[in-house]
Write a protein that binds this DNA or RNA. Structure first.
Lengths: 196, 196
DNA sequence: TTTTATACTGACCACTCGGTCATTATAAAA
DNA sequence: TTTTATAATGACCGAGTGGTCAGTATAAAA
């Protein structure tokens, strides 16, 4: 009897439109009305799918980090330094779409950085990535493929910080792709020489 | 005849009070009225010194980065890789006091990350630091002290991103000093092997 | 003490925003 | 075609903001 609608699809469409608007104008300069009107729907409809603007950005963020982790952690292990370097290069060459989200993230969640709960969540995220690198470094080290004189545990963690720094700078400063690719090449060179 | 006031002093007092308020409540949750009332002056008075809220945050930002740069860029040039590494180690080993300010910084300025003006200022800051490293790398390269096969220009810029990432992670995730020092050691090792 | 150039005030304005809800539109079922 | 359960609407509200400006206070000079 009732009118039926694909809620899941609508959900995704809202998330997509909102993200686009946030990237373009910033979170605080994007009103719910604006999102609605750009979608050609009424503001009230947004509130049928998301209780609040906060809940909307939360959903976007959750999705972003979910995708991110899949990209950062490879399922297979690496049996050579070059395989590892290749994965790292792939990790660094993030899409503009992804890097554009970075300023939005900091704009929205900057004020949360004093919350322990918030920090712990992201701390765990990066620790898991670090663990992935640590395990691969240990394996390569056992096989004698990289320097014995480095600590996989600490190198793994600091390495993640470094990668994050590079990605953050791309996002913050909108470094153009030509320059950025050359920068990535330098990192790979450094690692190739430094790990052996 | 006229009433005379130390405008410079008043300026500084406003900047100080505004920063404190931003730190405490976040930029967007701090109204101009709030700043004024906490200073015991009227809102209108603020507008005699700063044309807009944006101009106020701009002044605060400028001052912050000015102080920071003095700490990060050494005046003298390095005549050996070890001297460079030593400076880098010093840069990374920032005090807890300084690193504790990082979350605060993002808490305060997070909401500004959608402003092009803010980003440009921030971008220039890091470019200048990168330039400092680029020049030193060029010099060391000319002397044959480091790998010929790297580009000082791009390495300098990406290197700054990496250092920033390490420092940011210390600040965000409150990595304890024991672990952090070991992490720094790994970076230095990587550079020592990788640059030669 | 009076004058006067400047500094300070705070009520007020115009506007925006997130969020609500009574009303209307829709499409599946009867 | 009528019924009906659900979806969509958008005018409206209250709260809050950045910014203004006519009027008032102040302190140096006359």
């Amino acid at each position: 009897m009732p009118k039926v609608v694909d809620k899941e699809l609508m959900n995704q469409q809202i998330v997509f439109a909102a993200l686009q608007a946030f990237v373009k104008h910033g979170f605080h300069n994007t009103s719910m009305s604006k999102i609605a009107s750009e979608m050609g729907i009424a503001k009230g409809t947004l509130y049928l799918y998301f209780k609040s603007k906060d809940q909307l950005i939360e959903a976007i963020t959750k999705q972003h980090f979910h995708n991110l982790k899949d990209r950062l952690v490879s399922q297979q292990n690496f049996n050579s330094v070059e395989a590892l370097l290749s994965h790292i290069e792939g990790t660094l060459l993030i899409s503009d779409e992804d890097s554009q989200f970075i300023p939005v993230f900091f704009e929205v969640f900057g004020p949360s950085f004093s919350s322990d709960k918030f920090i712990n969540e992201y701390s765990n995220f990066f620790n898991e990535i670090a663990q992935f690198y640590t395990e691969n470094l240990e394996s390569l080290q056992t096989q004698g493929l990289i320097q014995q004189d480095l600590s996989p545990k600490y190198f793994g963690r600091v390495f993640v910080s470094m990668l994050d720094g590079i990605i953050l700078h791309k996002g913050f400063f909108k470094i153009n792709n030509t320059d950025y690719n050359l920068m990535v090449k330098e990192v790979i060179k450094l690692l190739r020489y430094g790990l052996n």
